[in-house]
Design a protein around this nucleic acid. Sequence first.
DNA 1: ACAAGTCATTTATCTGATATATTCAGTCGG
DNA 2: CCGACTGAATATATCAGATAAATGACTTGT
Lengths: 232, 232
Amino acid sequence: MSGGRNLTYGLLDQLGRAIVVGRYDAAVFPTEAALAKQYGVSRSVTREAVKMLTAKGILTARPRKGTTVQPAGQWNLFDPDVLRWLLERKFSPELLRHFNELRIAIEPAAAALAARAGAPKTVAEIAAGYTRMVDAAAGHDEPLAADIAFHLAVLRASANPFYAQFQDLVATALRTSIRFTSGLDGHAASLPQHRAVLTAIQAGDADAARRAMATLIDDVLEKIAVAEAVAA
Amino acid sequence: MSGGRNLTYGLLDQLGRAIVVGRYDAAVFPTEAALAKQYGVSRSVTREAVKMLTAKGILTARPRKGTTVQPAGQWNLFDPDVLRWLLERKFSPELLRHFNELRIAIEPAAAALAARAGAPKTVAEIAAGYTRMVDAAAGHDEPLAADIAFHLAVLRASANPFYAQFQDLVATALRTSIRFTSGLDGHAASLPQHRAVLTAIQAGDADAARRAMATLIDDVLEKIAVAEAVAA
DNA sequence: ACAAGTCATTTATCTGATATATTCAGTCGG
DNA sequence: CCGACTGAATATATCAGATAAATGACTTGT
């Protein structure tokens, strides 16, 4: 049905989605024996899938009490799997707004750090991302892929491993933002803004880099606010 | 030796620490059979511990190829376990700086969101945290615990689940910062700054809340910079 | 030299038994 | 009537051993 790399990953995926979508919000989570029978797999596979979900903060297991779903606040939202499950089943303008409320905190700060301490090699990757965006505007590259490459390069150039952790989230946010930013029109318009970010980082101007990135994401947030208002 | 809740969690902890400290940077990671023999546990326990580490992005396993350590960039640094292993064995002023470089991005933005959209109940928690800090200054409460309570309340009041994810990291950063901020003297001095954050949030002044929180953390970053310079 | 097939190694999966922890109900003593 | 203790029930935890599947290395035939 939903086969992953193997039975364990397939079950992990099915259970993760089912939990995130809320199938067990009211019902009690099945015991490992019940799960094994229900999905037609052995207890080993069941136990390993459950253990992975506990490692992601989604489940807990205790003798006699059984396996229970953790409150959503315990879930590790920055885990790529959890993020994917969240999007596949619970996508909403509100979730997209939450994404970008985080982006507006992280990315300007990352741009500032990149301007201050970015290694030449990583800054060159930002420049390469911008070049791809220019090519894309002329029809020679994928606009979305180029945009993502630019933003991820900034995160890496921050020289702070914690900022690099947001690459998944930012890539996801950019991919899903497409549905709200009226496609590629507004995208082409943002070329000068991206250029401003790049030149500020290359010049080592942290404040300018921060401001340029902030206005870039502010525009996205405004468009989401409009979309949320329309939906309401 | 290092017993956790049970054998699986004990092995998870030992392996996690060993990997994070770099014991397998050069050496190849043992096979599941070798691990089981080495730690004197069954293959089930070994496999479940390994599966949890793969869920945290630290390991991958493939038939015939064996189990291998992932590059550090793949590790889920916001996982509480990973964070703990990182600190227990690899603590450094640089790591503390990385923590606070993230805090200066997150917490001012969280304060701004709290000012704009904070629910009265969660804002009351911030006020309660501040009250605890005042009590602590008079010797009636734990200064560190009160400080942590204040900052975590701001994160929760942001009404954005992604910001709430940083509670572990901020609590950890505050606990470890003590070693560098000359104990409680500088702490008492920051009371007015915390008050400024609180009143700005209560007044709904997002920009003031952001600025007040930013100066608060900037002070910490400055002290860390001094410590790093001294160490060099 | 090259392509197909064989082999060895490691994880993946299944099965069934036993151990251990925890809750719940009941019992006994005060 | 209440509190502590006791035992049964039930879930996860652990062990052991066998078989399957995947994959990289090797071998062999042309």
